[in-house]
Simulated scan of single mutants.
Amino acid sequence: MNQETTRAQTPTPVHQFTILLSATRRGARLARLLTREQLHSWEHPFESAEQIVAELANNAVLHGHVPGRSFRLVLTLIAANTLRVEVTDARADRSPPLHPRRPSPEAESGRGLLLVEALAARWGTDLGTLPLSPCKTIWAEIDAPPCPL
């Protein structure tokens, strides 16, 4: 489900992790690895989070890159049952489509946001400004499965 609205009032986070990473392939890979380790340390293995971070970080590198600028990864665990992933890059002028389209079978790319849409309970885009520059944040929320009785 794609939501175009800005972030609603979020409950107080249980845990939060924030890091700036270089807008390079290496930075995108590091975002994925750090997500895995951080969620492991919180003892909250959201299985799809690593894949969502990989897609959003890769998009930040490919479509949101501005020379000399980093991208920011934020992981927020809310009330022990929802993980919010945010990736912020420096290209506010390049927002993703509200409804991603399936690429042709021959296409070698273009499936990332379809994957995010399939794995996340909610996702969307927030436009904002960092000190002295515009930016955009692509966010996704993943709900933990209910505990078996």
Rank of each mutant, 00 (worst) to 15 (best):
residue 1 M to N: 12
residue 1 M to C: 08
residue 1 M to Q: 11
residue 2 N to R: 15
residue 7 R to D: 04
residue 8 A to C: 05
residue 9 Q to N: 12
residue 9 Q to V: 11
residue 14 V to S: 15
residue 17 F to Y: 15
residue 18 T to W: 00
residue 25 R to V: 11
residue 25 R to Q: 12
residue 25 R to P: 08
residue 29 R to F: 04
residue 31 A to D: 05
residue 33 L to M: 12
residue 44 H to E: 10
residue 45 P to M: 12
residue 50 E to A: 11
residue 51 Q to T: 14
residue 52 I to H: 02
residue 53 V to N: 03
residue 53 V to I: 09
residue 55 E to F: 12
residue 62 L to R: 10
residue 67 P to M: 10
residue 69 R to D: 13
residue 69 R to F: 07
residue 70 S to M: 02
residue 70 S to Y: 00
residue 72 R to M: 03
residue 81 N to H: 15
residue 81 N to I: 01
residue 81 N to C: 09
residue 82 T to W: 06
residue 83 L to S: 08
residue 83 L to W: 08
residue 85 V to W: 00
residue 88 T to H: 06
residue 89 D to L: 09
residue 91 R to V: 11
residue 92 A to D: 11
residue 94 R to S: 03
residue 99 H to V: 05
residue 101 R to T: 07
residue 101 R to L: 08
residue 103 P to E: 07
residue 103 P to V: 05
residue 104 S to R: 15
residue 105 P to Q: 12
residue 111 R to N: 04
residue 112 G to Q: 10
residue 113 L to H: 02
residue 113 L to D: 01
residue 114 L to W: 01
residue 118 A to Q: 09
residue 120 A to G: 03
residue 121 A to C: 03
residue 126 D to Y: 00
residue 130 L to I: 02
residue 130 L to A: 14
residue 138 I to R: 00
residue 139 W to Y: 10
residue 141 E to W: 04
residue 141 E to P: 07
residue 145 P to W: 06
residue 146 P to G: 14
